[in-house]
């Protein structure tokens, strides 16, 4: 497995391939469509992330000292965004995740290009991932 830094750099590189915001969104949409299936039975209120206009469920499991995330949403761009985060953070140790500053999200400029509700949603996603990591440490 690549390192956390490598995974983040890969996302930054992917995003910088596209000059146009529309293309960056197309990329997010493709990521969203490719998100791994989520167990319908896991769509429970305790897994719902607050602050999103669209609904987003995020599940965290610990195996062999590492955290694995799965998620689903009724909006595809939300799925694309969470897929991006899952790609970077799933399979890492709680220490790695808790110690990270998540600044690559700022680097790719995504936050500035979301609607305020989506930006809130993104902040909640990050917060939830951090909380899982801190709880499991």
């Amino acid at each position: 497995m690549n390192t956390l830094e490598e995974a983040k750099q890969a996302v930054i590189d992917d995003f910088s391939l596209y000059d146009e915001w529309l293309d960056k969104y197309e990329y997010l949409i493709e990521l969203g469509k490719g998100l791994e299936p989520f167990d319908q039975a896991d769509k429970t209120d305790d897994k719902l992330i607050k602050g999103c206009q669209s609904r987003l469920w995020l599940k965290c499991e610990k195996k062999d000292g590492r955290l694995y995330f799965t998620a689903d949403s009724d909006a595809i761009i939300t799925k694309g965004i969470i897929s991006l985060l899952i790609g970077v953070y799933s399979g890492r140790t709680p220490e790695e995740i808790a110690g990270d500053d998540f600044s690559f999200i700022v680097t790719i400029g995504l936050k500035d290009n979301l609607s305020p509700t989506r930006a809130n949603g993104l902040a909640s996603m990050i917060e939830t991932i951090k909380c899982f990591a801190q709880d499991e440490r």
Binding site: L22, Y25, Q53, S54, A75, I77, S115, R118
Partner: peptide, 21 residues
């Protein structure tokens, strides 16, 4: 099959400003 906010976000990138929600 398409969420209103996804549509609004994509249309925004095309220059079209409209409301969703």
């Amino acid at each position: 099959g398409a969420h209103q906010e996804d549509l609004a976000l994509v249309l925004d990138k095309m220059g079209v400003a409209l409301r969703s929600g």
